[in-house]
Amino acid sequence: MKRQKRDRLERAHSRGYQAGLSGRSSEICPFQSLDARSHWLGGWRKAMEDRSVTL
């Protein structure tokens, strides 16, 4: 995988994680492409898991 693509997907994951930590809904995902959307949602899910462990 090219570095540019990987960086973009890592950034999508990170933004999804931040959205999940702040308690936002998964419906607000700003990405339309399937790859970026799935990485964003993966980050969101990870944040939700992390939040439930700490609560």
Rank of each mutant, 00 (worst) to 15 (best):
E49G: 13
E49D: 15
R8F: 09
C29P: 01
S26M: 05
R45P: 07
W40P: 00
R51V: 15
L55T: 14
E10N: 15
Y17W: 09
L41K: 05
S33T: 15
S25W: 01
A36D: 07
R24I: 06
S52W: 11
R51D: 12
R45K: 07
A47G: 04
G23T: 05
S14I: 15
R6V: 12
R45W: 10
T54A: 13
S26R: 10
L9M: 07
Y17H: 08
L9Y: 07
R37M: 03
Y17S: 02
D7K: 04
H39F: 15
T54P: 02
S52Q: 15
I28T: 09
E10V: 12
G23W: 03
R11I: 13
Q32F: 04
R3A: 07
I28C: 06
D50N: 03
L41F: 09
L34I: 11
G20M: 00
V53W: 00
R15A: 06
R24S: 13
G43Y: 06
W44I: 07
M48N: 15
Q32N: 10
K2P: 09
Q18W: 04
L21C: 02
R37A: 06
R8E: 13
D35Y: 11
R24Q: 13
L41N: 10
M1T: 07
D7G: 05
S22Y: 04
G16K: 02
R8P: 07
E10M: 10
A36C: 09
M48R: 13
C29D: 02
S14F: 11
Y17R: 01
W44G: 05
Q18Y: 05
C29R: 06
Y17G: 02
H13K: 13
R51A: 14
A12E: 00
K2Q: 08
R15F: 11
D50K: 00
Q32D: 05
W44H: 13
G20T: 03
R11L: 11
L41E: 12
P30E: 01
H39M: 11
W44M: 04
L41P: 02
V53H: 01
L21H: 00
Q18D: 09
L21F: 04
D35W: 11
R24F: 10
D35L: 14
A47I: 01
M48H: 15
L21Q: 04
S38I: 08
R11P: 04
S22V: 09
M1W: 00
R24P: 09
A19P: 02
S22K: 12
H39T: 10
E49F: 10
A12F: 00
R3C: 03
V53Y: 01
M48Q: 15
K2H: 10
Q32S: 12
A36G: 08
G23I: 04
W44V: 08
R24L: 12
H39R: 13
M1I: 02
P30T: 05
G20R: 00
S26Y: 03
A19D: 05
D50T: 04
Y17L: 05
S26A: 14
E27F: 03
C29S: 11
G16P: 04
G16A: 08
K46H: 14
S14N: 14
A12I: 02
R3Q: 05
L55N: 12
F31L: 06
C29A: 08
H39I: 07
C29G: 04
Q18T: 09
P30Y: 02
E27Y: 02
R11C: 09
H13A: 10
C29K: 07
S26K: 07
E27D: 12
R3T: 11
